[in-house]
């Protein structure tokens, strides 16, 4: 995972430069874009990041851009900045998941705090995404029978019940269960339940 990056989208070059310098002064890497289109065309690094977005943009407004990003499944935390904000605009942005809504000229500390919050949020999201991806890879190595058994195990059934359910002996169930636990790297049944929850494969008890 690379270093954290702050993306800045603002049509005013003065603001872009000032923000880049401000972020630089606290050791944050910043990338600036003059428009929403430019930002979309850039290749985004696979590292924690957040977006400082001007509400008033040529063409697509910042708020509409926020919606577009959500649709495109890009979950970058957004901090809005605006010269002239009003309450409805703020409410809309915050409801759509914005980290902060700041009015120009803003206090630098507020912006930096908001950026830290955004980066932290993104970092957490990314870690979660990575964990799930690992689990999924391990899960894929299970045989279909093993997957079936752990799905039933996590619903709280006993080995005997599972054996009756799928028509095999209790011994066989124990073997499948042991293999699956080993392959998934689960140290306990509770561990396995958490993993299955994160994967979202837990079967509803019928």
């Amino acid at each position: 995972m690379g270093p954290a990056t702050v993306f800045v989208v603002d049509d005013d070059p003065s603001i872009r430069e000032a923000l880049k310098s401000l972020f630089g002064s606290v050791g944050l890497r910043a990338e600036t874009f003059a428009s929403a289109t430019d930002f979309l065309q850039a290749k985004l690094p696979d590292s924690p990041s957040c977006l400082v977005l001007d509400v008033r943009l040529p063409g697509l407004s910042g708020l509409d851009f926020q919606t577009e990003l959500a649709k495109a499944n890009i979950h970058v935390p957004i901090i809005f900045i605006t010269g002239h904000g009003d309450i409805p605009m703020t409410v809309r942005a915050m409801k759509a998941g914005a980290v902060e809504f700041l009015t120009k000229p803003f206090r630098d500390q507020e912006l930096l705090d908001a950026v830290q919050v955004g980066l932290e949020r993104d970092r957490a999201r990314r870690e979660k995404d990575t964990l799930v991806a690992t689990l999924r890879a391990r899960y894929e190595t299970l045989t279909p029978r093993e997957q079936e058994v752990i799905a039933l195990v996590t619903t709280g059934l006993m080995n005997k019940q599972i054996a009756a359910e799928i028509g095999v002996t209790e011994i066989t169930v124990k073997v499948h269960r042991g293999n699956a636990m080993r392959k998934m790297g689960a140290k306990s049944l509770a561990d396995l339940v958490k993993m299955v929850d994160a994967l979202g494969v837990r079967r509803a008890r019928s």
Binding site: I15, A18, G24, S25, R56, H84, K104, P105, F106, D108
Partner: peptide
């Protein structure tokens, strides 16, 4: 409104730049 925006932009940049300068 347009005048306000036009003036607010450099002002915001000035404020941010001075903060950045101070931090540097």
């Amino acid at each position: 409104a347009s005048i306000a925006h036009e003036i607010n932009q450099p002002l915001a940049a000035i404020v941010t730049n001075s903060n950045a300068g101070l931090r540097w």
